[in-house]
């Protein structure tokens, strides 16, 4: 099967833009919309190559001031639209047992340069890659109960 090769050199707009939405909707009706899936970190790249949801090989080269986000249209022709779909960030939710465990956990995560957020008594670690790599490094905390993983 021939793989289509596509090139994107600008962010044309957003799929909710009034002027563009109808064109995108029309292309959707005839199954001519393709998506590229990017993590929040990957939206910072300005030169990259990615496979679309329909298997096309898409080369992207954008100006540095371009903004890529969920719904950004990078190709829009009579034949097709290519739209960015942002992958949802995955989080590991942790709850330390007490103040001492919280201090140790905070130091540990900082030492590993993990991106974290705080929500009440929880510490949330932004996952960049395989979750097991994070769990391995937390095994002593999780093993002796100083830190509990929240899954609900």
């Amino acid at each position: 099967m021939d793989i289509k090769k596509l090139k994107a050199r600008e962010v044309i707009g957003h799929c909710n833009d009034l002027k563009l939405a109808k064109r995108v909707e029309d292309l959707k009706k005839i199954d001519r919309v393709e998506y590229i899936y990017l993590s929040p970190e990957e939206t910072a790249r300005r030169h990259f190559r990615v496979q679309t949801s329909k298997g096309s090989d898409c080369a992207v080269a954008l100006p540095r001031n371009a903004h890529l986000g969920d719904g950004s249209i990078i190709i829009l022709t009579e034949e097709r639209a290519v739209i960015v779909s942002l992958k949802k960030r995955q989080w590991l939710r942790l709850r330390p047992l007490d103040q001492n465990a919280a201090l140790e956990l905070g130091y540990h995560c900082g030492n590993l340069h993990w991106k974290v957020e705080f929500k009440g008594s929880e510490l949330k670690v932004a996952l960049d890659g395989d979750e097991d790599n994070y769990l391995d490094r937390l095994s002593s905390f999780l093993g002796d109960g100083r830190v509990q993983r929240i899954t609900e």
């Binding site: 050199r9 300005r46 030169h47 080269a61 954008l62 100006p63 540095r64 001031n65």
Partner: peptide, 11 residues
């Protein structure tokens, strides 16, 4: 002007 067109790639 270099900001408004695809500039050099960075590795």
């Amino acid at each position: 002007s270099h900001y408004h067109r695809p500039g050099p790639a960075r590795i």
